[in-house]
Design a protein around this nucleic acid. Structure first.
Lengths: 347, 347
DNA sequence: ATGAAAGCGCTAACAA
DNA sequence: TTGTTAGCGCTTTCAT
C-alpha cells in the first residue's frame, strides 16, 4: 500500500473563500461540491476537490450550524459516563453517530438537583443539537426529561417504558421477573433484593422482582438499597451473611452482586451452597467471577445504537414511539437449589 | 427552599435581538451583560437579566464559535470510551471541563488506520475546539499525535513520557518496575508478563517489568500478549496453569489479571499458593476479587482532570510541558512468597 | 456607558 | 450549471 495521501495538515484553517479562489470558482460552488446535492460540472468539481486537498480544507462546524440553525451534534445527557451501563450505552451511541456523520457531546447532570439539570440542558441546547439523548436510568435523567422543551428531537434511553417520550428501552421488568422466578423455582422461599440507588419511581428491576414474589405468593422482604459502588455490596453482604432467613439474593446490578459475594465470602458463607446470588447486566467480569454470576444480559451498546438511530426518523415523524430490546437471563454457577439443611425454616 | 426559579423552557430559542428588544437596549449591551467584561449601568443590566429570564434565552454556541473563531468545545480523541482506564479519564476530563464552562465532545479513532485517525481528527478540528485531548494509551492515540497540526492546543494523555507534546501522564514504567521487584523480592525466580495489546513502541508497563528483571539479573521470559477482553486473560491462564516454570505473573491490567486467575482456578491452580498474580490499574473490582488483587493504583480521573486543566495555560505558554502523576503499588492477597515445594527448579 | 456597523464562514434563494 | 446577494446570531471595533 503506497502512502498516496498527500494532504498537508495545514496550520491556520482555510475557508471556502480560499478554496474558491484557488479553484477559480465561486464560494457556493464549493459548497455545492461538498454537499453533493446540486449539480456541478465535472471540471469544476475536480478543480474544487484539488483545492480542498491542497489546502487541507475543513468546513467550519460553527458556520454550518449557524446557517443551518442546527449543528451536527448529538447531545448525550447523563449522570455518569463511566459506570458500566452508561459507558456501554454511550459507546453504542457514538458508534451509530459516527455512521451518521454526527458528533457526540456529553453533558453531565450528576444529580436531579435543579441547578445540575439546568446546566446540563443549557449546555446541550446552546449547541442547537440535531438531537438529544437522555440516559434516563436514574433520577437525574428522569428529571431532565421532565423539563425538556419540545422543539428538539429527544429520545429517552431507559429501562422502563414512559409514554411521554420517544424512547429506546430494555424491558428490565420482565427480565427481573424471570430471574426472580428462576430463584423461586429452585426452592427458595423468597428472594431478597439489594437494589441500585432509587430513581424516583420504582425501577423495572424492583418491580419485576416484586411481581414475581407476588405471583408466587412469597413474602416480600424490604428492599435494601446499595450505592453504585461495588464496595457497598460487600458491606451489605457482610451484614446479611448470618441472617438465616436469606437464601437467595437478587442484586440490582452485577457490580453490587460481586461485592455482595465478596462480603459473604469474608464471613465464610459460600455461594451458591449457602446463599444463591444473582445480578443484572452481564458485566464482562460476571462470567469470570468465582462462582460465575447468574445474571441478565443487557445489551447497552445496542440500546444506545438504536436510540441514536431513532433521531433522524424522529425529525419526520415527531410522534412518540419506542424501540424495545429484550434482555436475556443467563444461568451460571451462583444460583442453585436451596439447601434444606442449613438455612431454612427459621424466619 | 422556595422554588423561585421561573424560567419558562421556551420553545423556539430566543436571540439576543429578542432580549434587546424586550429590555429596550441594544444588542451589544446584552452581550456585555452576559460576558461581564464591560461596564453596564445597573438599571439596564437588571432589565436585560429580566428579559433573559423571561425569554429563557441561551446564547447560540454556533454564533459565538463563529465570531470568536473558537468554540467552547474540548475534543477528546480516543480509541475507546468504555474501557476502564479510558472511561475514567474521560470522567475526569468532563468534570474539569464543566468547572471551566467547557463542553466535551468525543471523537473515536478505533484503530491507527489512516482513515480512522483522519476522520476523528477532522471531526474534532471542524469544531474549532478550544483544545484537544488525545488519549494516547495505545497505537491509535499515538498515531493521532503524530499527525497533529500545530495551531490548536493539544495535550497528550498517556502512560509514557513523550517530549514532543504537552502531556499529562502517569509514569507506568516506575510503577511496573516496583511491582515486578516486589514479586522478585518474594523469592520468585522471574516474572512472566501478560501484556495488553502492543501499542507501537513498548508500553511503560512492559519496560518497567523488563528493567526490574534485568536489574535483578533474572531471566526475561517472552511477553505474552492478551487482547483487551478479560476473557483472553482466562485463556492464557488455562494455557499457563501447568507450566511449572511460571510462579509469578504480571498482567498488563486488572481485567486481564482477573480473567487469568479465573483460568488458573478452572485448572485447579491456586492463587497465590501456586502462582502469584498481579495486575495494573486498581479496577474497582480488584479489591473485591477472591483473592483480592495486588495491583498498581492509577488515578485516571485525576489524570484526565489535570489534562483538561492544562489547556487554558497552554494558550499563554504554548511550549511543551508535562504534568506527572505517580501511581502507587497496592499489595493485596494475590501475591505471596514463592512456595519452595511445588513449583521451582524445573525450568 | 451605550449604540451603530461590520463581519466571522457558510448555505439558500434568486438571477442569469 | 453558475454567480450574486443576503443573513444565520453573535462580538468587537469605533463613535458618541
Amino acid at each position: 500500500m503506497g502512502d498516496d495521501m498527500a494532504e498537508q495538515p495545514q496550520g491556520a484553517s482555510a475557508t471556502m473563500a480560499d478554496v474558491a479562489r484557488l479553484a477559480g470558482v465561486s464560494v457556493p460552488t464549493v459548497s455545492r461540491v461538498l454537499s453533493g446535492t446540486h449539480p456541478v460540472s465535472h471540471e469544476r468539481r475536480q478543480r474544487v476537490e484539488e483545492a480542498i486537498a491542497t489546502l487541507g480544507f475543513r468546513r467550519s462546524a460553527a458556520a454550518r450550524a449557524l446557517k443551518n440553525r442546527r449543528s451536527d451534534i448529538v447531545a448525550v445527557i447523563t449522570s455518569s459516563t463511566s459506570m458500566y451501563g452508561y459507558a456501554e450505552t454511550i459507546r453504542g451511541i457514538e458508534l451509530a453517530a459516527r455512521l451518521e456523520q454526527l458528533t457526540v457531546m456529553i453533558a453531565v447532570a450528576e444529580t436531579d438537583a435543579p441547578e445540575d439539570v439546568t446546566r446540563a440542558m443549557d449546555a446541550a441546547l446552546a449547541h442547537t443539537p440535531t438531537g438529544v439523548l437522555v440516559l434516563a436510568f436514574d433520577t437525574a435523567g428522569v428529571a431532565v426529561l421532565d423539563r425538556f422543551p419540545t422543539d428538539v428531537p429527544v429520545v429517552a434511553v431507559s429501562g422502563q417504558r414512559d409514554r411521554r417520550f420517544p424512547q429506546a428501552l430494555i424491558d428490565e421488568r420482565s427480565a427481573a421477573f424471570e430471574l426472580t422466578s428462576h430463584l423461586l423455582q429452585l426452592g427458595h422461599p423468597t428472594v431478597t433484593h439489594v437494589s441500585v440507588p432509587a430513581s424516583g419511581k420504582e425501577d423495572g428491576r424492583t418491580t419485576g422482582w416484586r411481581e414475581a414474589l407476588h405471583r408466587a405468593g412469597a413474602q416480600v422482604p424490604d428492599v435494601i438499597e446499595a450505592s453504585w459502588l461495588p464496595a457497598s455490596g460487600r458491606d451489605i453482604g457482610r451484614a446479611l451473611a448470618h441472617d438465616r432467613s436469606v437464601t437467595a439474593v437478587f442484586c440490582g446490578n452485577d457490580e453490587i452482586a460481586m461485592g455482595f459475594m465478596r462480603g459473604l465470602a469474608e464471613e465464610g458463607v459460600r455461594v451458591p451452597d449457602d446463599i444463591s446470588v444473582v445480578g443484572f447486566d452481564d458485566h464482562p467480569l460476571a462470567a469470570l467471577w468465582t462462582p460465575s454470576l447468574t445474571t441478565v444480559r443487557q445489551d447497552f451498546a445496542e440500546l444506545g445504537f438504536r436510540a441514536l438511530q431513532m433521531l433522524p426518523a424522529l425529525r419526520e415523524h415527531p410522534h412518540i414511539s419506542a424501540r424495545e430490546l429484550c434482555p436475556r437471563v443467563v444461568l451460571r454457577e451462583s444460583s442453585a437449589p436451596v439447601r434444606s439443611g442449613r438455612r431454612s425454616g427459621r424466619v
